[in-house]
Design a protein around this nucleic acid. Sequence first.
DNA 1: TATGAATGAGAGTTCATTCAT
DNA 2: TATGAATGAACTCTCATTCAT
Lengths: 195, 195, 195, 195
Amino acid sequence: MPETETSIHPRKLEITHAAVTCFLEHGYHQTGVRDIAKQAGISLGNLYNHFKGKDAVLAFIAELEGEELSGFIELLANPDEPRAALEQFIDQYAAYTARPENALLGVEILTEALRNPDIAKVFGANRSRLIDALVSCLNKGTKTGIFVPYDDPRAVACVVLDALEGVGLRGLSTSKPSEHAIRSIRSLIINGLEA
Amino acid sequence: MPETETSIHPRKLEITHAAVTCFLEHGYHQTGVRDIAKQAGISLGNLYNHFKGKDAVLAFIAELEGEELSGFIELLANPDEPRAALEQFIDQYAAYTARPENALLGVEILTEALRNPDIAKVFGANRSRLIDALVSCLNKGTKTGIFVPYDDPRAVACVVLDALEGVGLRGLSTSKPSEHAIRSIRSLIINGLEA
Amino acid sequence: MPETETSIHPRKLEITHAAVTCFLEHGYHQTGVRDIAKQAGISLGNLYNHFKGKDAVLAFIAELEGEELSGFIELLANPDEPRAALEQFIDQYAAYTARPENALLGVEILTEALRNPDIAKVFGANRSRLIDALVSCLNKGTKTGIFVPYDDPRAVACVVLDALEGVGLRGLSTSKPSEHAIRSIRSLIINGLEA
Amino acid sequence: MPETETSIHPRKLEITHAAVTCFLEHGYHQTGVRDIAKQAGISLGNLYNHFKGKDAVLAFIAELEGEELSGFIELLANPDEPRAALEQFIDQYAAYTARPENALLGVEILTEALRNPDIAKVFGANRSRLIDALVSCLNKGTKTGIFVPYDDPRAVACVVLDALEGVGLRGLSTSKPSEHAIRSIRSLIINGLEA
DNA sequence: TATGAATGAGAGTTCATTCAT
DNA sequence: TATGAATGAACTCTCATTCAT
């Protein structure tokens, strides 16, 4: 619940943005705390007035990313037309992950979450919210008969997310926006889900 | 046959296995060259008689991983029954990526490839071979009329790989083998592809 | 005034003195950064808060040495009596180079300057100032008719410096102050220059 | 007495030449034993069949340099005309030290001799032979009345050598052959010595 | 004689973090 | 809040040398 903080010091956000810039350019482990401080234009010691340590910066970034997911979740949460909602989600989430900053940060956070419990906690919470919303959308679609019933809707939701995020990751190396790719995924998924 | 060396010094393989163990347990960046040497039971300096540096160890691991893909590629290359071949590939590749060692190493190599050209080269070559084979299978299926035609078969191939690898990655956090997940993916994909 | 920094951190000077001690005793390449830090009584990492690296320490020493030359340069710059000025310079500069610390550091800096551009820059600047001053003194002497005219006064200046510095270097091995040597040089030079 | 060796293995000379090449290019301390072996086209271990260690290679180079001095020494040893012999020596020795390889190696050996007794022994022996010869030439000149008497002929000899070697060293940085310089030195010295 | 794997100490440098000011 | 000096462990990598083959 990052929103419960009474107010976020503007300096904290500056540091966060500086860190994002560094992490994107050089990666989390290749970025030093000094680099972040320099990029933020503050002293090294002052960074520790706003963050407990390097980990905390990444965790905070993950928190902020989590807030960006709210739009997607609302979209999926209680859709009148599950199929339309799903299609819209696919397009928008694909666009989201296609932005290199999101794809790169995503994989940094993912890999760090594998071994760092603090990061894992935030990352897992974000993921759960998104998957829950997606599952609820799929279930509604199944209930209204427009989607085939699956024995593990959560697995399907994961596949959808993995595929979409994979596009973003792939785009990093190939450096092409891959309009085709997104369309193909949407077709594949919708095709595969439709009753 | 990426390994053109006439013979590989057994010590080189020992070091490689030690490195794999370390990378799996602590990650690439969290593993020191000393850790690898200690795990391999050799002196630090001797490691540099077999590898140019830490990067080279990871690159060599990626090379060896590439060789493990040959089985999958043969499976897909010129299938009599594309649908059966695809299903078989999905099951086997899902089983492959479901093994934590493969999933973990895969993501380490992937993220390192994003910024390290030496790793990117090997990683990209491996990926290309697999995608090419998958595309050829899809194309054959389309030609024989059992798959719907897609305007970007390569994108579809990527989706399939991303989804399967996503399962492996997901399994690392949830630590359950996820039989369901694989079945769901197979259904989704096959369902989505069938004419 | 090569030192444009508004103020030099006292620790930086402490490190410099420690480095001088080490370089004199063991030579530049045989001295480790750890040795310098230990001699200075500070931690290893802190040294890098004051110097960019080992090279920078030597470069700074060379800078400080350059400042010590100012006295000699003033002596030579615009002498009323070139011959007296030259004799005085010879005696004083011989005494300067006869001090082992100056001779030893000088040769360390010289040899390092041969391959390290950063050192070469500082070293070259120092040398130029001294030679320029010497040349101006010789020229004045020639103009006033007390020195023979030379077609390359700069070459003569170099010879004088080389000879004087050679005494200092020689004294390191023979470990005798060599009063004789200096007197011989002065005679030789003055004798050779007089009209 | 390097000549007493019954015979020098040709490989030993190859290694020596390789070492000279390396030392000239990167300096003694910056050259690794591996570099020498690679340059010589032999294995690392084999180098140690011919030399006790890295020091021994430099010491052997110094020995060979000593042999090259024989010509100069004969020239000076018992001259019929000391003045002509001295002039000839100045020109030839200047030409010798003007060759970068000799100047560079000379300063490498000199600085190493300051702290390494093994090198100092060889270097000192070479120097003594040359100075002795020069002194004997000067003394003969003084005796025959063509040179002024000096109270320390050995010091004068040192000045001459220092000046000539200084030219070579100076030429390394300025990279001009400095015909002028040599002429100036000869004039200065001869001028200064003549009765 | 010749090889190159093996050693481990040591190289220079960066690290995340703390703390007095 | 803000500073940057201070810490020392850790980093990757190179060193001269030895030794079994």
